[in-house]
Each structure stands twice: as C-alpha cells, then as structure tokens.
Computed example of a mutant assay.
Amino acid sequence: MKNHSPLLLVTNDDGITAPGIKALIEVMSEIGTVIVVAPDKPQSAMGHAITINNTLYLNKISKEEDLITQYSCSGTPVDCVKMAVNEILKQKPDLCVSGVNHGSNSSINVIYSGTMSAAVEAGIEGIPAIGFSLLDYDWNADFEPIKKYIKKITLEVLENGLPEGVVLNVNFPKRKENEIKGIKICRQAKALWVEKFDKRETPQGRDYYWLSGTFVNQDKGEDTDEWALENDYISVVPVQFDLTAHHAMQQLNTLKWND
C-alpha cells in the first residue's frame, strides 16, 4: 500500500441512503480518505446503463466540516463513477469500492448488477475496484459480521493491486461472523434465471406485467461462487471487462468468411 492515505471512491446501486453503503463507508473511513458518489434513489439491476437522453444532477449532501465528502447523483451507478472521475475528483482514486449490495451478485447476477457495473466502470478507467454484496435482501440486513472481511480484502488489494483489466466480485453468505469459514477464490457458476412474467390488467383494461423468476444453478463444481456461498465461504471472483471469447477465435477462423 502506498505511504500516503489512500483515496477511496465509494458507490453502490441501492442508493445513497442504503444501510449497505453506510457500512461500507464506515469500513473505508478506517483505511483512507473517502469520497462517496452514489445514486439518489435505488438503481438495482441497471447493469452498465448510462444516462444519455436525460439531464444528470449532482448534489453535495455533506457539509464542509464533515470528514467524509458525499454526493448524490440522479443517474445510474455507472454514471456515478463517471461523474466522480470526470467532475469531482482531481486525481484518480487508489480504489473504487461498490456496495455493500443488499442481495446476491454471484453467478449470472453479475451481468445485471448495478453494483458490479460500477466496479467494472472504475476498472475501465484504470482504477482497481471491488464490488461487495451480502446474500440478504432485507433493508435492515446485519452487515457487522462482514466488516472485518471487507477491510481485509480492501487492504490486500491496496497492498498488492489487481491484474490489469480485472475487478473483484465479492459475495458474502448470510452468516454470523464465527460461522464464516474463510475466503475462496472462485469461478462464476454456470446458472440462470428461469423467468416468468405475471400478466395483469389495469382497471382501464390495459395489460401490464411483473417479472419474477427462479434461480437455477446448473453447475455442480466445487470451485464456484455458488458452492462457496452455500458452504459458508466468502466468494471472490475475478471479473474481466474484455468480453472477447478468446477460446472461440481459432475455431471461427476456420470458417470460410471471405469465400
């Protein structure tokens, strides 16, 4: 870790008033200088969406004498990171942390996650980044058991850095501190949502839909994030934002594209 106090950017997708981000800010304040830029309202499952057809608003909600500087942003989690890097910070932060999300971002959920997309955006900007999530959707979830692990993982990344083009997806099981067995480096489990649209009708006779679904883990491997979480471990999955399927290029090059 650098000799100076690290500059830490904190964001999330549940909104700046969420208990999860408050827990994350508390831990980060023990490590370095904290700047918070988070959505002014819940933005869950926004993925890597950005605002291009509407105005963006930024509101400083901390006072000058506060030790932690906080801004709310009218946009998405990715907007928050972009605004922080381009409009607020005079230098790149040493680390961006996103969360703590109320609910799982393991397996295929990483694709839809605003929490992880904020971390990925930081990674694209060349900033080491971590997304933290707790497998508890309750607004009043207990974050105390995981705080020491958040601090440990953060300090390890600050000390040692991350491979180029990689950010970390960290998920915590809903367990008491003494029930967590440790940290496992994992791969993303092969799983999906079996989705269902609940069709209803307004009093005016117009159809509308509610999306619901069942999560199905198709992966029996014991090296996955789903296995780790089911067995009381913290899962850490290295995520890359280069979406190229490198393993498929050789096969595709055998096809007669130009004949």
Rank of each mutant, 00 (worst) to 15 (best):
A119S: 06
L134N: 01
G131K: 06
D142Q: 00
I130M: 15
V97F: 08
L135N: 15
I130S: 09
E125G: 12
M116W: 09
G114V: 11
W139R: 10
I111V: 08
E125S: 13
E125W: 01
G103A: 08
I111A: 15
S107R: 02
P128R: 04
I108E: 11
A119M: 08
G131Y: 05
P145R: 06
W139V: 14
G114R: 07
G126P: 05
H102Q: 07
Y137M: 10
A119C: 07
F132E: 03
G131I: 03
V120N: 14
N101P: 07
V100S: 03
L134H: 08
A122W: 08
I130D: 10
F132R: 00
P128Y: 04
P145V: 05
F143Y: 06
S133Y: 05
A129M: 15
N109W: 10
G123D: 05
S113I: 10
T115N: 09
Y112K: 11
S98D: 15
G131M: 07
P145C: 02
E121V: 14
A141C: 07
I124G: 10
A141D: 01
A119F: 07
S107H: 01
L95D: 01
A122N: 01
D138C: 05
S133W: 02
F143R: 01
G131R: 06
Y112C: 06
A119E: 05
N105F: 09
V100Y: 10
G123H: 04
I124Y: 07
I111L: 14
E121T: 07
S98P: 06
V100I: 13
V97E: 05
V110E: 01
G123C: 03
F132A: 10
Y137N: 15
A129E: 09
S106L: 12
I111Y: 15
I130W: 11
